[in-house]
């Protein structure tokens, strides 16, 4: 797992430095190996199924686009038909990785924003009825459960 971290860090170094003479590349390799070695591996990465994580991004983008258009229509409507409300949203997630992914996705989607996070419950602010319904249909949970499906990590 640390090797994977090192490879990701090294790829980031290559992209950002973009000078490919031996000195820079070697320094980058050494630094990323050192960082990966000094830091403990994240416990959630072990449970991540990479394919589902990659497939999750286009789906999330679709959701963002849909609700973004909806919120834009609300904002541009001269009557401003919003009905903001705090919703207590029960989830079955109790571990940090899932909660972070869920909270981040909810906040990233226009129309809903995470206010408080606790294991098993999120407080979400929704801007109107439709965003609230979108949140309640549980498709976020299903997808994120798929992303963290590889549960061989004991934790």
């Amino acid at each position: 797992m640390r090797i994977l971290t090192a490879v990701i860090l090294f790829a980031l170094w290559l992209v950002l430095s973009a000078t490919y003479d031996p000195a820079h590349v070697i320094v980058g390799a050494v630094v990323s190996a050192l960082v990966a070695w000094l830091n403990p591996a994240l416990p959630h990465m072990r449970r991540l199924s990479w394919f589902a994580a990659l497939a999750y991004q286009p789906w999330l983008f679709g959701r963002i686009l849909k609700s973004g258009l909806h919120v834009s229509r609300l904002i541009l409507d001269p009557k401003l038909p919003i009905s903001p409300e705090l919703v207590r949203h029960k989830t079955k997630f109790t571990r940090d990785g899932e909660l972070v992914a869920l909270g981040n996705s909810i906040t990233l989607t226009p129309g809903t924003i995470t206010v408080e996070v606790a294991p098993g419950e999120l407080v979400v602010h929704a801007i109107d009825e439709e965003s609230r319904k979108d949140l309640l249909d549980g498709s976020f949970e299903a997808k994120i459960a798929g992303v963290f499906a590889a549960t061989e990590g004991e934790r």
Binding site: I75, P84, L108, H125, I127
Partner: peptide, 15 residues
């Protein structure tokens, strides 16, 4: 209010 304005900011940021 603050909470609704955060939604506007999220439109800006995300899209």
């Amino acid at each position: 209010d603050v909470f609704s304005r955060a939604h506007a900011l999220s439109v800006t940021d995300s899209l």
